[in-house]
Computed example of a mutant assay.
Amino acid sequence: MRDSERAEPGSIAARLAARLGELRTGRGWSLDELSRRSGVSRSTLSRLERGELSPTAALLGTLCTVYGRTMSRLLMEVEAEAPQLVPAARQSVWRDEASGFVRRSVSPPHTGLRAEVVEGTLDAGAAIAYESAPVPGVEQHVWVLEGTVEITVDGAVHTVGSGDCLRFLLHGPSHFRCPGPEQVRYVLVVVLP
Protein backbone atom coordinates (compact mmCIF):
# COMPACT_ATOMS: atom_id res chain seq x y z
CA MET A 1 0.00 0.00 0.00
CA ARG A 2 1.34 3.45 -0.88
CA ASP A 3 1.82 5.96 1.92
CA SER A 4 -1.21 8.08 0.99
CA GLU A 5 -3.60 5.12 0.60
CA ARG A 6 -5.80 3.67 3.31
CA ALA A 7 -6.24 -0.05 3.89
CA GLU A 8 -9.27 -1.52 2.11
CA PRO A 9 -12.17 -1.68 4.63
CA GLY A 10 -12.57 -5.22 5.97
CA SER A 11 -9.13 -6.32 4.74
CA ILE A 12 -6.58 -7.91 7.04
CA ALA A 13 -4.56 -4.67 6.86
CA ALA A 14 -7.59 -2.66 8.01
CA ARG A 15 -8.38 -5.15 10.80
CA LEU A 16 -4.73 -5.08 11.91
CA ALA A 17 -4.78 -1.27 12.01
CA ALA A 18 -7.99 -1.33 14.07
CA ARG A 19 -6.60 -3.98 16.43
CA LEU A 20 -3.43 -1.98 17.06
CA GLY A 21 -5.64 0.99 18.01
CA GLU A 22 -7.76 -1.21 20.30
CA LEU A 23 -4.69 -2.53 22.08
CA ARG A 24 -3.43 0.99 22.77
CA THR A 25 -6.76 2.50 23.85
CA GLY A 26 -7.61 -0.59 25.90
CA ARG A 27 -4.61 0.23 28.06
CA GLY A 28 -5.58 3.88 28.32
CA TRP A 29 -2.44 4.99 26.49
CA SER A 30 -2.15 8.02 24.28
CA LEU A 31 -0.12 7.85 21.07
CA ASP A 32 2.59 9.79 22.93
CA GLU A 33 2.67 7.15 25.69
CA LEU A 34 2.91 4.30 23.18
CA SER A 35 5.65 6.18 21.35
CA ARG A 36 7.59 6.53 24.61
CA ARG A 37 7.20 2.83 25.43
CA SER A 38 8.01 1.53 21.94
CA GLY A 39 10.53 4.01 20.57
CA VAL A 40 8.34 4.38 17.45
CA SER A 41 7.40 7.91 16.40
CA ARG A 42 3.93 9.18 17.22
CA SER A 43 3.24 9.97 13.55
CA THR A 44 4.17 6.43 12.46
CA LEU A 45 1.91 4.94 15.13
CA SER A 46 -0.96 7.21 14.10
CA ARG A 47 -0.57 6.24 10.43
CA LEU A 48 -0.46 2.54 11.39
CA GLU A 49 -3.69 2.80 13.37
CA ARG A 50 -5.42 4.69 10.54
CA GLY A 51 -4.36 2.00 8.06
CA GLU A 52 -2.24 4.43 6.04
CA LEU A 53 1.00 2.53 6.57
CA SER A 54 1.76 -1.19 6.40
CA PRO A 55 3.93 -2.27 9.33
CA THR A 56 7.15 -4.16 8.82
CA ALA A 57 7.77 -7.42 10.70
CA ALA A 58 10.30 -5.60 12.89
CA LEU A 59 7.81 -2.86 13.76
CA LEU A 60 5.09 -5.41 14.53
CA GLY A 61 7.60 -7.31 16.68
CA THR A 62 8.33 -4.14 18.65
CA LEU A 63 4.63 -3.44 19.21
CA CYS A 64 3.94 -7.07 20.17
CA THR A 65 6.64 -6.82 22.85
CA VAL A 66 5.08 -3.62 24.22
CA TYR A 67 1.63 -5.25 24.24
CA GLY A 68 2.90 -8.54 25.74
CA ARG A 69 1.76 -10.88 22.98
CA THR A 70 3.30 -12.99 20.31
CA MET A 71 3.10 -11.93 16.67
CA SER A 72 1.22 -15.12 15.82
CA ARG A 73 -1.43 -14.26 18.42
CA LEU A 74 -1.76 -10.71 17.09
CA LEU A 75 -2.17 -11.97 13.54
CA MET A 76 -4.71 -14.60 14.64
CA GLU A 77 -6.67 -11.81 16.32
CA VAL A 78 -7.22 -10.09 12.98
CA GLU A 79 -8.19 -13.15 10.96
CA ALA A 80 -11.81 -13.77 10.04
CA GLU A 81 -14.34 -14.32 12.83
CA ALA A 82 -13.43 -17.23 15.06
CA PRO A 83 -15.60 -20.28 14.51
CA GLN A 84 -17.48 -21.46 17.56
CA LEU A 85 -16.80 -25.09 16.66
CA VAL A 86 -13.20 -26.18 16.11
CA PRO A 87 -13.43 -29.67 14.56
CA ALA A 88 -10.72 -32.12 15.62
CA ALA A 89 -9.55 -32.41 12.00
CA ARG A 90 -8.84 -28.63 11.91
CA GLN A 91 -6.92 -28.48 15.20
CA SER A 92 -3.27 -27.90 14.42
CA VAL A 93 -0.79 -30.43 15.81
CA TRP A 94 2.90 -29.68 16.31
CA ARG A 95 5.42 -32.39 17.10
CA ASP A 96 8.88 -31.98 18.56
CA GLU A 97 10.33 -35.41 17.83
CA ALA A 98 13.61 -34.55 19.58
CA SER A 99 11.94 -33.92 22.94
CA GLY A 100 9.00 -36.32 22.62
CA PHE A 101 6.44 -33.52 22.92
CA VAL A 102 3.19 -33.26 20.93
CA ARG A 103 1.00 -30.13 21.14
CA ARG A 104 -2.57 -30.00 19.78
CA SER A 105 -4.21 -26.56 19.65
CA VAL A 106 -7.74 -27.60 20.68
CA SER A 107 -9.08 -24.04 21.01
CA PRO A 108 -6.57 -21.63 19.44
CA PRO A 109 -6.24 -17.98 20.50
CA HIS A 110 -8.46 -15.46 18.73
CA THR A 111 -9.76 -11.89 18.99
CA GLY A 112 -12.04 -11.31 21.92
CA LEU A 113 -11.12 -14.63 23.54
CA ARG A 114 -8.64 -14.53 26.42
CA ALA A 115 -8.21 -18.28 26.84
CA GLU A 116 -6.85 -21.07 24.70
CA VAL A 117 -6.93 -24.82 25.28
CA VAL A 118 -4.00 -27.09 24.40
CA GLU A 119 -3.64 -30.87 24.65
CA GLY A 120 -0.09 -31.94 25.37
CA THR A 121 1.62 -35.32 25.47
CA LEU A 122 5.13 -36.01 26.68
CA ASP A 123 6.89 -39.34 26.24
CA ALA A 124 8.27 -41.08 29.34
CA GLY A 125 11.55 -39.41 30.29
CA ALA A 126 10.88 -36.37 28.07
CA ALA A 127 11.20 -32.83 29.36
CA ILE A 128 10.52 -29.35 28.02
CA ALA A 129 11.71 -26.09 29.56
CA TYR A 130 10.51 -22.54 28.98
CA GLU A 131 12.93 -19.76 29.91
CA SER A 132 10.22 -17.22 30.66
CA ALA A 133 6.49 -16.62 30.56
CA PRO A 134 5.24 -15.64 27.08
CA VAL A 135 3.21 -12.94 28.83
CA PRO A 136 4.11 -12.20 32.48
CA GLY A 137 1.24 -13.12 34.79
CA VAL A 138 -0.40 -15.49 32.32
CA GLU A 139 -2.79 -17.87 34.10
CA GLN A 140 -2.31 -21.59 33.43
CA HIS A 141 -4.29 -24.67 34.47
CA VAL A 142 -2.79 -28.12 33.81
CA TRP A 143 -5.26 -31.02 34.08
CA VAL A 144 -3.65 -34.44 33.69
CA LEU A 145 -5.78 -36.94 31.78
CA GLU A 146 -3.36 -39.91 31.82
CA GLY A 147 0.02 -40.49 33.41
CA THR A 148 2.11 -38.19 35.59
CA VAL A 149 4.00 -34.96 34.94
CA GLU A 150 6.39 -33.01 37.13
CA ILE A 151 5.94 -29.27 36.67
CA THR A 152 8.41 -26.77 38.10
CA VAL A 153 7.08 -23.23 38.62
CA ASP A 154 8.79 -20.55 40.72
CA GLY A 155 11.37 -23.15 41.81
CA ALA A 156 8.73 -25.50 43.28
CA VAL A 157 8.30 -28.98 41.79
CA HIS A 158 4.73 -30.28 41.62
CA THR A 159 3.94 -33.93 40.82
CA VAL A 160 0.61 -33.92 39.01
CA GLY A 161 -1.07 -37.31 38.48
CA SER A 162 -4.05 -38.53 36.50
CA GLY A 163 -7.14 -36.45 37.37
CA ASP A 164 -5.12 -33.79 39.24
CA CYS A 165 -5.05 -30.13 38.22
CA LEU A 166 -2.26 -27.63 38.90
CA ARG A 167 -3.09 -23.93 38.46
CA PHE A 168 -0.79 -20.94 38.70
CA LEU A 169 0.14 -17.49 37.44
CA LEU A 170 3.36 -17.70 35.45
CA HIS A 171 5.93 -14.92 35.77
CA GLY A 172 9.19 -16.73 35.07
CA PRO A 173 10.57 -20.03 33.82
CA SER A 174 8.68 -23.32 33.89
CA HIS A 175 9.67 -26.93 33.30
CA PHE A 176 7.57 -29.99 32.38
CA ARG A 177 9.00 -33.52 32.78
CA CYS A 178 7.33 -36.90 32.37
CA PRO A 179 8.91 -39.30 34.89
CA GLY A 180 7.18 -42.31 33.27
CA PRO A 181 6.88 -45.21 33.06
CA GLU A 182 4.19 -44.27 30.49
CA GLN A 183 3.67 -41.01 28.59
CA VAL A 184 1.58 -38.22 30.09
CA ARG A 185 -1.41 -36.62 28.35
CA TYR A 186 -2.76 -33.37 29.76
CA VAL A 187 -4.93 -30.37 29.01
CA LEU A 188 -3.37 -26.92 29.37
CA VAL A 189 -5.72 -23.94 29.66
CA VAL A 190 -3.95 -20.61 29.10
CA VAL A 191 -5.73 -17.39 30.12
CA LEU A 192 -4.19 -14.03 29.27
CA PRO A 193 -4.13 -11.42 32.03
Rank of each mutant, 00 (worst) to 15 (best):
R104I: 10
S132Q: 13
R104Q: 15
T121D: 03
A126M: 05
E131A: 15
L145A: 13
P109K: 05
S105E: 14
G137F: 03
V153M: 07
A133D: 06
H110G: 11
V138Q: 06
A124V: 10
L145R: 13
V102I: 15
A156I: 10
G120C: 12
A127V: 11
G120W: 01
E119L: 07
A115I: 05
G125S: 02
P136T: 07
E139P: 05
G155I: 00
I128C: 04
Q140R: 12
P134E: 00
G120Q: 09
A127G: 13
A115R: 12
H141Q: 15
V135R: 14
P136S: 11
G147F: 07
A129K: 08
G112E: 03
I151V: 15
L122C: 04
V102D: 02
V106G: 01
P108S: 09
R114D: 12
V118C: 02
A124R: 00
E119P: 01
G120A: 05
T111R: 11
P108T: 05
Q140L: 14
I151A: 05
S105G: 11
P136Y: 09
V135N: 06
S107W: 09
R104G: 00
V149H: 03
P134W: 04
T152C: 07
A126P: 07
L113Y: 07
G147N: 04
E139I: 05
Y130S: 15
G137D: 05
G137L: 03
V135Y: 10
G155M: 04
V153F: 08
V102Q: 06
V102P: 00
I151H: 03
L122W: 02
W143K: 02
V153C: 13
T121N: 04
